Every structure is written in structure tokens, then in C-alpha cells.
Simulated scan of single mutants.
Amino acid sequence: MTSILPPQDLTPWNEEQKQEAAQKLSPEARRILLNQGTEPPFCGGLLDNKEEGLYHCGLCELPLFSSEHKFESGSGWPSFYQPLDRDFLHYVRDTSAGMIRTEIRCARCDGHLGHVFDDGPRPTGERYCLNSVALVFYKAT
């Protein structure tokens, strides 16, 4: 399902744009996307999704990940070994859980998506561990 994406507008959103888009979200999605929350493992709606398509930011709908790069990590969260484009993500040092991790946020709206770890499969060795409610899935047509 290799897809060529049209150019994406990565102009950072202002607070008004974020709050307007957040009105469509569930309280849980707002908690995760806007306040760096985490959903419990093994409960997210996209964990077992095997359909072909693209995973978009749940707040601004920027396309972020492809089903081609999804894998079963056993972690309890949807996992990918690479994003569609690294420029679509911000990487932030996170020491909030008593360890050093790398948080990933959407480059356009700054919504919290999850974390990336260096224990993934080839070819990247990365594991992008995401919250299902931080994403919207669009099935390939």
C-alpha cells in the first residue's frame, strides 16, 4: 500500500486552533493529546487493527504513520517502526516517569501521541508506541 502524500502544511497551530479542534474530541482524547496522558495498555481501539491505511493525528489530522510500518510489539499500544516523515513529528526529551524517554508530538498541532524507543525491528530499530485515541485511522481505498 505504498502511497505518495501530497505536500503537508506543517505551519504550527496557535492555541485558538488547538482549542477549536479539541472540541470534537472525547474527554480521554483531550487528556492524552493536550495533557500528555497515556491510555491503559491493551485497551486501545487501534491496537489490533490489521487493515491497510494511514494513521492521522487525532487533533489536526496530519497523516503520520502507515499500516505498512505497523508491527505487533507486545507492549499493549499500536507500534510502528517508522513514521511517514520524521518532519511530521517533534521529538521531546521526557523524564516524567522516572526514566529518560523520547516523547513524540505532532509537528503541526503539538498533540501528544506517545513515545519512541530504540528497541524496534529492522530496518530502523525504532518502536513508535502510540495511544490509539491520539490517532484517527483512514482505510486505504
Rank of each mutant, 00 (worst) to 15 (best):
M1A: 06
T2E: 15
L5R: 11
P6Q: 15
P6G: 13
P12A: 09
E15D: 14
A21G: 01
A21W: 12
A21P: 05
Q23W: 07
K24W: 05
L25D: 08
S26I: 07
A29S: 05
A29K: 03
L34N: 08
Q36M: 09
T38D: 08
E39H: 03
P40L: 10
P41L: 11
P41C: 05
C43K: 09
C43T: 15
G45V: 11
E51L: 10
G53H: 09
L54S: 00
L54K: 02
Y55V: 05
C57L: 04
C57I: 04
E61Y: 02
E61H: 06
E61I: 00
L62E: 03
P63E: 12
L64V: 10
S66V: 14
S66P: 06
S66N: 04
S67P: 01
G74C: 09
W77I: 00
P78F: 07
S79Y: 07
Y81K: 00
R86A: 04
D87K: 09
D87W: 06
F88I: 02
L89H: 01
Y91M: 14
R93N: 07
T95I: 11
G98E: 15
T102G: 02
E103Y: 10
D110I: 06
H112P: 05
F117S: 00
D118W: 10
Y128A: 04
C129E: 08
C129R: 10
C129T: 04
